[in-house]
Simulated scan of single mutants.
Amino acid sequence: MNYLGTRLRELREEKELLLRQLAATLEIDTALLSKIERGDRRANRDLVEKAGIALSAKKDELIILWLADKIDDAIEGEPLAEQALKLIESKKQ
């Protein structure tokens, strides 16, 4: 899944920004931003925070989406992933 990239694209398009404009603001190249939006690459936390500022987005929303992508990547294809997530959730309560 690509939770963060999809949301970044939505926010960028709502602000009517071109990829190159946002990439320049984030000080990354346009190709990298495009890959992040498509889910071909993952952003680091610092970039997520910068993007949140640049797009006037809620920091927590973007960090949650970033973490969801990381978790999804880590458990992809694992047959016991759902049980492991339930275990973690039960320990947090």
Rank of each mutant, 00 (worst) to 15 (best):
M1N: 05
Y3P: 00
Y3K: 07
L4I: 04
L4C: 09
G5N: 13
R7T: 15
R9K: 15
E10C: 09
E10G: 10
L11E: 11
R12S: 11
E13F: 06
E13M: 06
E14I: 09
K15R: 15
K15E: 08
L17I: 04
L19C: 03
R20V: 14
Q21G: 05
Q21P: 00
Q21C: 01
L22F: 08
A24V: 00
A24W: 00
T25K: 11
T25R: 14
L26C: 07
E27M: 09
I28H: 03
D29K: 15
D29L: 04
T30C: 04
T30R: 13
A31F: 09
L32Y: 12
S34P: 01
K35N: 14
I36N: 07
E37R: 01
E37F: 12
R38I: 01
R38S: 10
G39K: 10
D40R: 14
D40M: 12
R41N: 12
R41H: 07
R41I: 12
R42P: 03
N44H: 10
N44I: 02
N44V: 02
R45Y: 01
D46V: 05
D46W: 09
L47I: 12
L47Y: 08
V48E: 03
V48Q: 03
E49Y: 08
E49G: 04
K50T: 13
G52I: 08
A54N: 07
A54M: 11
A54L: 11
L55M: 08
L55Q: 07
S56W: 13
S56A: 14
A57M: 02
A57Y: 06
A57C: 04
A57I: 05
A57L: 05
A57Q: 05
K58E: 15
K58F: 13
K58S: 09
D60G: 04
E61G: 03
L62P: 02
I63Q: 07
I63G: 11
I64Q: 13
I64S: 09
L65F: 04
W66Y: 15
W66C: 02
W66I: 01
A68T: 13
A68L: 03
D69E: 07
D69M: 03
I71M: 01
I71T: 07
D72F: 14
A74K: 14
A74I: 03
A74Q: 10
I75M: 06
E76Q: 14
E76F: 14
E78Q: 13
P79L: 05
A81L: 00
E82S: 07
Q83T: 02
A84M: 00
A84D: 00
A84S: 01
L85P: 10
K86Q: 02
K86Y: 01
L87W: 02
I88Q: 03
E89A: 04
E89I: 00
S90H: 10
S90G: 01
S90P: 02
Q93C: 06
